[in-house]
Write a protein that binds this DNA or RNA. Structure first.
Lengths: 205, 205
DNA sequence: TTATATACAAACATGGATGTATGTAAATAA
DNA sequence: TTATTTACATACATCCATGTTTGTATATAA
């Protein structure tokens, strides 16, 4: 039995992606061979080359499957404009992402790969620009939310929404990095939401 | 002329390290060959294997040369206990690191390699633990400084020194990551010190 | 029903990286 | 002065990953 139905083919494609994610995580992207991935997916390299041009294409497939939905989701939480508590809105968008990291294995693995198991050179360098762009966009959303918070007079101190947004973005960026690195959970994973609440609390009047 | 004097040998060793740093930066650690490094250093692989066991050992040499002094330096700035303004002390320690990143090419390159051009698996995984440990230690230093600030009554709000320290650490961790990624400087590099001052200002009564 | 395209497996060909072994001229020790 | 290291360069052997080509059974279209 060689030739599969279209649905079967789609299943093996997904199996290859899943296998690649786990192999990447364990061995790092550059040390992972297509043979490793194929074996883990219980196919041959022939199947892998049928579905993907090369390793880079698998990498992007993994990334797109997890990151594109996540960005949309974060956007959604932040963009609601008629919230009566924009600070809680920011807090929720951050906690929501952490919550996803905790519960969604694929997402956790993907984050770990992107942050610690790949090298941003050549073909991968373009990914960096995308990351930068997403960061800008998220920071802008934070700023808008802080503006709304300011007009509602719930902000402590005289700080500009822009400065607060940048600070929050850097805080969260750092938190994500530490969350991912802290694989035993002792230092950051277990108290991530507490840290977020505390960060927001700093801004509340 | 083959055999060199001891001083000459030390020079070629350093040339190999410098070459490796630039090759790692351009090609990523795993795609960098000892041949690449040797060529750039204007020696042969023979010389490289004479001075280093393998690529990993070069990697550690690069790291140690830059990071060990940096950590000491940050410790020094933070540990002075009789400062009359602990908040400025924290601010200075952060700004000082950014200043070093701006002025010290080797340090900048090394940071970039560690953050974006290597994969933390196998032999490199141990480096991660070191990073985590350094982070804990720095956070502890922050906490002590914030405690001093609290006892001097210059802190705004009711927040604990521990929470403030963690928040600052995450902020700075994020800043370093973004600083490194922002290679054209437009988004973070040029305004890093402003962001730091603003972050500290948030805490000042 | 037959022809063709699909979804792979298996085989092949190539290049490149690693580590080691060997060679060697000069520095240094004795 | 001679013997012995030292600091490399050169040559060799091995392995491994990649990409491509070929083969093939079957799903699907006509």
């Amino acid at each position: 039995m060689v030739r599969k139905t279209k649905l079967d083919a789609e299943l093996t494609r997904q199996r290859i992606i899943d296998a690649a994610r786990e192999v990447f995580l364990a061995r790092g992207v550059s040390r992972s061979t297509l043979e490793h991935i194929a074996t883990r997916a219980e196919v041959t390299r022939g199947a892998v080359y049928w579905h993907f041009k090369n390793k880079t294409e698998i990498f992007h497939a993994i990334r797109d499957q997890v990151f594109l939905p996540l960005i949309d989701r974060m956007d959604d939480t932040l963009t609601v404009e008629n919230s009566d508590d924009p600070l809680t809105q920011i807090e929720n968008s951050l906690c929501d992402t952490i919550h996803e990291l905790n519960n969604n294995i694929q997402m956790r693995q993907t984050y770990e790969i992107m942050m610690m198991k790949c090298e941003y050179v050549d073909e991968f360098a373009t990914v960096l620009q995308q990351i930068l762009n997403n960061c800008s966009s998220i920071t802008d959303k934070f700023e808008l939310a802080y503006k709304r918070a300011k007009s509602k007079k719930i902000l402590a101190g005289p700080h500009t929404p822009r400065a607060l947004a940048l600070d929050t973005h850097l805080f969260f960026s750092g938190l994500l990095h530490m969350w991912v690195k802290d694989t035993d959970g002792s230092k950051f994973r277990f108290q991530a939401t507490v840290l977020i609440k505390s960060h927001i609390q700093l801004r509340r009047k």
